[in-house]
Every structure is written in C-alpha cells, then in structure tokens.
Simulated scan of single mutants.
Amino acid sequence: MNTSYAAMASWSVPQDAESYPLSESQLQFYRDNGYLVLRGLIDAPTLAHCKERFIDICSGRVDPGMITVMKEFSLKDSGKTGEELIYKIQDVLYDPVLYSYSSHPRLVSAVASLLGDNLTAMNSMLINKPPHTACHPPHQDQYYLPIRPSDKILGSWTAIDRVDRENGCLYLVPRSHRAGELYEHGYPPNAKGSTNLLFHGIHRDVAPLHSRLYLTMEPGDTVLFHSLLVHGSEPNVSQR
C-alpha cells in the first residue's frame, strides 16, 4: 500500500456538525475498499467520559453490571492491577455512559448512510491493550456473528488515545471483502500463554505484510469496515 493511496482513505469531520451523512464519494470508496476512515468523528468530551468510565470499572469503583471484564492473560502473574491489567471490557452497550459512543449522532448518521436507518448495535467492546499485549491475528468480524447478509454488517472502531504501530494499532487489507468469502479461522500458532488464546485467525495467508494498511489514529478518529474485510492488530511493544 503506497502513501498516496493511504492519504485518500480518510476524511476530516467538521467539529460543529451534529450529524455526518456520508457523501457519494465516501460511499463509493467504502464499497470499493471495504473501509472508511473519518478523522475526528467522535468529540473529546464523549471520549473523556468513556475513558473515565473504563478506568472506574477497571479499578472496581463502578459495578460492571452486565459488562465482562477481561484480563490480559500474559500479565496475570505480573502483580499489575486496574487498567494496567485489563485487556478489554465486553458488552459495553449495557453501560449508560459507554452507550454514549454507540448512540453518538455522528456515528449513527455515518453508519446509517451505509446500512440504512433500521440499525442495531451488537458485539460491543472497549479495548485497552496494556504494554506487552500480543497481536490480534488476521480475521474477519463476520466469523464471530451468526447473522447475515454480510453487506448489512460493519464494524466501527474509534481511537480514545493515539494509536500507532508501536502501541498496537489496527491494520487492514483494503478490498479483501470483495472476494465475498468467509475464510476458515482457527487458533494461531504459539497461542499458549498470550491473549491469542481468546482469538481465532485466518488459516490462509490472506494478509501478507505488503498488503496491510496500518491505521495511525488520533483521538476521535474512526474507521468503519465491512464484516468480511480482513484486519488485525499489532502487539503493543511500547510502555503506553
């Protein structure tokens, strides 16, 4: 993936916009490439409230309720606590504060442009990735979801803090959704003793290094991607 192509893959969102319906050029880019990066889609106050809520849940100051709190497997004997130990929290839709992300008017408006107005949110999570967290192998979201059609399902992913290759950013394979195929998934090699015990990856080599687009994102930047798009994440090799 060359730099000029990557530069075409994002749009800046006006911060005074109450909604954000997508343009025809954005819709066509998504159809062609399987993803869309919207810079600054989610406002800073929403991100701050979500981050504070996450820290409160990790520290035990707030009852997680129906949220599942998942620890980083490789750090279980490290003595770390709170947000330094938690890999992610699952089913954040059930939390009244974190639901402000899924129901954010600009996000809902953008998603509705791609899927239609009759929407439901599912498989929601806030991912933390403490230092030394492993990679998430190449996979497709459709593998985890027992519903169809694939063209009516997408993932949204928003950065709360800056993410880059050092601290474990997302990568994706542009246009990989166009094969229309759900690949066979399984446990990656050498998964024992890492977060990868929780994840399945694609058995075939459908994400060679030269095909990956790494998404460096600032707080509020959001990527929307097709449920068949091949994507994964880097390990966190930083201290962030």
Score class of each variant (00 low, 15 high):
residue 194 S to Q: 05
residue 197 L to Y: 07
residue 149 P to R: 07
residue 212 R to Q: 11
residue 211 S to G: 14
residue 152 K to D: 08
residue 208 P to T: 09
residue 139 H to R: 05
residue 148 R to D: 15
residue 192 K to C: 13
residue 156 S to C: 06
residue 138 P to C: 09
residue 166 E to G: 13
residue 174 P to H: 11
residue 234 E to V: 12
residue 209 L to D: 14
residue 195 T to H: 11
residue 209 L to Q: 15
residue 212 R to F: 08
residue 169 C to K: 05
residue 177 H to T: 04
residue 220 G to Y: 00
residue 230 V to M: 07
residue 172 L to P: 02
residue 177 H to S: 08
residue 141 D to E: 12
residue 237 V to Y: 03
residue 153 I to G: 01
residue 180 G to H: 12
residue 150 S to P: 03
residue 176 S to Y: 06
residue 226 H to D: 12
residue 139 H to E: 01
residue 174 P to N: 04
residue 146 P to M: 01
residue 156 S to P: 02
residue 239 Q to N: 13
residue 216 T to H: 11
residue 218 E to S: 09
residue 179 A to F: 15
residue 238 S to M: 14
residue 153 I to P: 00
residue 223 V to P: 01
residue 201 G to I: 00
residue 218 E to H: 10
residue 191 A to N: 11
residue 146 P to L: 01
residue 230 V to R: 02
residue 236 N to W: 00
residue 224 L to H: 03
residue 237 V to I: 14
residue 188 P to I: 06
residue 170 L to V: 10
residue 172 L to R: 02
residue 172 L to Q: 06
residue 167 N to C: 10
residue 143 Y to T: 07
residue 239 Q to C: 13
residue 224 L to F: 10
residue 134 A to T: 09
residue 157 W to C: 02
residue 214 Y to M: 13
residue 170 L to E: 01
residue 221 D to L: 04
residue 147 I to T: 11
residue 185 H to Y: 13
residue 138 P to K: 05
residue 190 N to Q: 15
residue 201 G to T: 02
residue 195 T to W: 05
residue 190 N to P: 03
residue 155 G to L: 04
residue 151 D to A: 06
residue 151 D to L: 14
residue 226 H to S: 14
residue 186 G to R: 11
residue 188 P to C: 03
residue 200 H to K: 11
residue 230 V to D: 02
residue 147 I to R: 13
residue 149 P to C: 02
residue 161 D to Q: 07
residue 142 Q to E: 05
residue 208 P to Q: 10
residue 200 H to N: 14
residue 229 L to V: 07
residue 142 Q to M: 12
residue 210 H to W: 04
residue 153 I to T: 04
residue 226 H to L: 08
residue 151 D to N: 14
